[in-house]
Design a protein around this nucleic acid. Structure first.
Lengths: 344, 344
DNA sequence: ATGAAAGCGCTAACAC
DNA sequence: GTGTTAGCGCTTTCAT
């Protein structure tokens, strides 16, 4: 390959015997340039196959038109959906996305933040890794006046824009639904309690029991059951109890619920008659398992769009005092066969 | 928020009364700087909370350490996995990813390419939209000496690095497996034939029939059945034929296979006894449908890593004549209950 | 309406 | 080892 130099505004200026500044103005469609000149410049740019050097432009302008996104894993449906939503909404406004995955590692999350700061991104969107309990890296973002938006897994005490699902409410609804279907010994599969989402879901579970006058049974609450395997393992334990539960709320994820379903089938528990199952996230497979699994939809693509719009609105806002507002999106309980003991 | 200026190497230089170039050298750990000076500079940088401005650095160096990725949709398992793989492998080498989605639109794909060129990315990784039949935008990438890697959905005539699955081979294996299980009237759900992947899969189907001396039956080959809905619709047509097929190969995707399974269940065809079903992609749900669905695993995360490594290797390659090599990854047939008429 | 010139923050010759 | 200087490609005053 030849390494011919790329065309710059100077090449165009030289060719037309005008000043680079005029070329720059014409290319950004400034009204200060005569129509005829503008036409000529645009035509020449086309001919010389000119493309703007966004890096140079950004350096000069002191902003990057870039949003950085940090998620635990790109290839989890929920996060992929949110990213798709962010991309969709920000794309139109000329923003690009730089994507990083923390792989659920705190150390790597910190590195991602640094990379994005170095890249001069205008905004950082983050959902925390499971390991993250220290938030200095988030504060350093704020110190630099970079817009910070936390979503889903957030540090509640760090004052930033936040986009959340109402996990407490969703969880309460799910458990109430189970109770209304006649389930009485409802087990809970919990996730790591340092993450707000799992804490809220547990609280919702407890509140639902309380509201319906049901006792809290310690042996029915199992920590750290947030993968298919861990869900299966927990279920094996639960179903071997002298008094096994008659329903399991896999508050961590549908993957955990899947583990529950597998073990239930394996141990010949009839779902939903002997065992009700409810998951979380509305992964696509929940619709097609046998029986289909009741779960909670998080409106994930919409969540992504909300995040992007929040940032874009903030930009328009000339007011310097940014109120660190929280947008709460109400998840939707999707009732399917795995909890329909009574029919409906 | 105050709009305090960010620290630059000049701030550090001034504070220590040394030249900015020395600061720059120290920060990039150049051996040309005395250890003592280096220590001092690093310490001061830390104190002043200095972060490099990657944009300025990139502009100066004439490269961006960025890889641009264009996929039809971020939130499809296959693409999300590939991206995760690319990210994982390139991250270590200090590369960032800019992600764009074409949304299966040609026009938008062209825009994505332009954005990435403007961003001075070092490499563009692309999987084509279903609408793309003109490749000028790809050629313009090559003209600029930007590394171009096509994967999965590629323009075969454009000479670039390519990473592909062997769709022909995989398809042949799948259909041969069906034949060996005793299925005789095997239907094909096809995808748009302008995409290489769907052409190859159809060829594989035809070759497998030929190799086993089975006739090609036109009414059993249905075009454009590449979503759950279209797959379902096609299946309804097929199963209503005077002589319905005894197996359906949803060569387009597991989503199409899902549509097949739903309609089969609905119309009381016993799977796999009366109807064999084979999908494509090994989506996570294929394992847990009832019955589980035979499919083809594309090693998607590995594919992403391969793409990244291909680019990184090319960098080391001082040889200017880049051979436009093609890496073919052999997909794996995953045999499950939906095709096990005979048992196994 | 156009041009001249400065400078965004960094790196890399080139000097000493 | 360290300093001086120029310049990556662009935008934006400030003149005219």
């Amino acid at each position: 390959m030849s390494s011919k130099k790329r065309t710059t505004i100077y090449d165009i200026a030289e060719k037309l015997n005008i000043a680079p500044s005029s070329v720059s103005r014409a290319l950004s469609n400034s009204p200060l340039v005569k129509e005829a000149t503008k036409k000529l410049i645009l035509k020449t740019a086309e001919e010389l196959n000119y493309k703007i050097n966004t890096i140079a432009s950004n350096l000069r302008k002191g902003q990057s038109n870039t949003i950085g996104v940090i998620v635990p894993r790109i290839n989890q449906n929920f996060f992929a959906d949110v990213i798709a939503g962010i991309e969709e909404a920000s794309y139109r406004q000329g923003y690009n996305l730089i994507i990083c995955q923390s792989n659920e590692s705190y150390e790597r999350e910190v590195q991602c933040v640094n990379t994005l700061i170095n890249q001069q991104v205008d905004c950082i969107v983050v959902s925390l890794s499971v390991e993250t309990t220290d938030y200095k890296h988030l504060e350093s973002v704020l110190d630099r006046n970079i817009e910070l938006i936390q979503f889903d897994r957030v540090a509640e005490n760090i004052e930033t824009l936040k986009v959340l699902n109402d996990n407490h409410q969703a969880s309460m609804e799910a458990v109430s639904h189970l109770i209304e279907q006649g389930y009485k010994r409802i087990a809970l599969l919990e996730g790591p309690q340092n993450l707000n989402i799992f804490r809220k879901r547990k609280e919702g579970y407890l509140d639902a029991l309380k509201n319906h006058g049901l006792p809290v049974i310690e042996e029915l609450m199992l920590a750290n059951a947030w993968t298919t395997e861990l869900g299966a393992e927990a279920t094996r334990k639960l179903l071997s109890l002298p008094q096994p539960p008659d329903a399991i709320f896999a508050s961590t994820s549908d993957f955990a619920a899947l583990g529950v379903l597998q073990v239930a089938t394996e141990m010949n528990f009839k779902v939903p008659q002997q065992l009700g199952i409810c998951g979380y996230s509305n992964e696509n497979f929940t619709e097609i398992t046998n029986p289909s699994v009741t779960t909670i939809d998080q409106h994930s693509v919409y969540m992504g769009k909300t995040i992007a719009n929040l940032f874009l609105d903030e930009l328009k806002n000339t007011d310097t005092s940014v109120a660190p507002k929280t947008v709460s999106i109400k998840p939707k309980l999707i009732i399917r066969n795995s909890t329909l003991k009574n029919g409906k």
